[in-house]
Design a protein around this nucleic acid. Structure first.
Lengths: 228, 228
DNA sequence: TCCTATACTTTGAGTACTCAAAGTATATAT
DNA sequence: ATATATACTTTGAGTACTCAAAGTATAGGA
């Protein structure tokens, strides 16, 4: 039985690997993501290696083993199902779900997760559009790009919002920039560092920084095109 | 912020005080209830006293302070609301709810509890008939007696089942001996050590031991009488 | 009154984390 | 080739628990 601290480290390493695939995760990034000192991260990583959850190369970094990936996907599944449950059933706003899910995911049983999965009708994604791994650990990755990688004129549909900042999520909801919404890219200005989008229904256009737009993942192609 | 270990000790002391009111809880009972060695209980109790949660008299025992009672009632409220939620929403059997609730109660936020309370329609009791303390810590105690304290011929309604053994709870459900059910006491035999009850609808009577019958709390008076 | 069983406390040590601070390796710039 | 910044590791110590085992107080029986 892994402790909840171990679960949290493994999940964090998974998220760091996701952000930069095919690279080892260095101690600096891990310790910052876990909000601990580098020495603590080193000590923990040695322990994780002795448990067979990661492969650790001193002064290089760490990668998850197959077993580590399995545990990570279990935790991601728990986290995302709990987030979905909090939003859909207990009326949390999508900006509020993260912290509570972070604490609950280490306390729930497999039975609890199975039951909320069934209660929610086996959802494919959480409120942020993140895919929910299945019980056997498989995860479907959709073909998405960051909003800032689109070209002016593109019609795109918002698929995921990976930024967890509650204030940002609140703003996004106000502007209806949530998974499922279709928008047209009006302008991307490297000079101003901004991205402007407009809505198909003709509402006032909205501008955000390129930095934050990297956290908005979209599917290319208008909804109409896909229907063909 | 109390740790979940502290929360668990306080809740356990509360339950022991409930079982024998107006007495201090000795270390032996506490250490057994917590499944730790007596030395561990002594050390912890000193810590709880230094936090102002209990009053501790060496070699006598421990009593909750007002602050300790407040924390205990918070934990009892959480536990019972979670149990109710697991049974009513996630389709757990009442014999299964305890263990999951025991782990979740230390991980949930106040907001989570508020939302569950509202979602369930502010229930007064949990699946075992135990009263759920309100958010301000008040608890309504109904006037109940143990089944073995009744007299043959009494018509009683089951109010609480304080035995947590899953096998026992499963049997009780099979026999419809759950909170709300009205039964007539047929016979109490001190010699045989048994209590026999029959159902008002004429189903076959059921016999259980006096020892287990002490965990079944009932209200005296037939439902008809109460309607007057 | 003394004796003994029992309950209780104390002590020393171990686990699973954490940090601060000192020491070491490495990439890069000069 | 050497210096330096940075990343990283090691060490020593602290917190919050836990147990085993040794020592102490107390109630009740002889």
């Amino acid at each position: 039985m892994p402790t909840s601290t171990v679960e949290q480290y493994i999940k964090t390493i998974y998220q760091q690997e996701e952000r930069a695939p095919r690279e080892t995760v260095p101690m600096k990034r891990l310790s910052e993501a876990m909000a601990v000192t580098p020495g603590t991260a080193t000590a923990m990583v040695k322990h994780l290696a002795s448990c067979g959850l990661v492969r650790y190369t001193p002064r290089k970094g760490v990668v998850l083993t197959t077993e580590g990936q399995k545990l990570a996907l279990t935790m991601v599944r728990r986290h995302r199902l709990i987030e979905t449950f909090l939003e859909r059933v207990l009326q949390y706003d999508w900006s509020e779900v993260h912290d509570d899910a972070e604490r609950l995911e280490h306390a729930v049983s497999d039975k609890f997760i199975q039951r909320i999965d069934a209660y929610l009708g086996f959802p494919a994604t959480d409120p942020h559009g993140d895919p929910i791994p299945s019980a056997d650990g498989s995860i479907t990755r959709r073909n998405v790009v960051a909003l800032n990688k689109c070209a002016p004129g593109d019609t795109v549909r918002i698929s995921r919002v990976t930024n967890e900042d509650p204030a940002f999520l609140l703003l996004m909801k106000e502007q209806h920039l949530v998974p499922g919404t279709a928008v047209v890219v009006v302008d991307i200005s490297e000079t101003a560092g901004t991205v402007t989008v407009r809505y198909e229904d003709g509402a006032a256009p909205f501008t955000l920084s390129i930095a934050t737009s990297t956290t908005i993942m979209v599917e290319r192609g208008s909804p109409e095109t896909e229907k063909l």
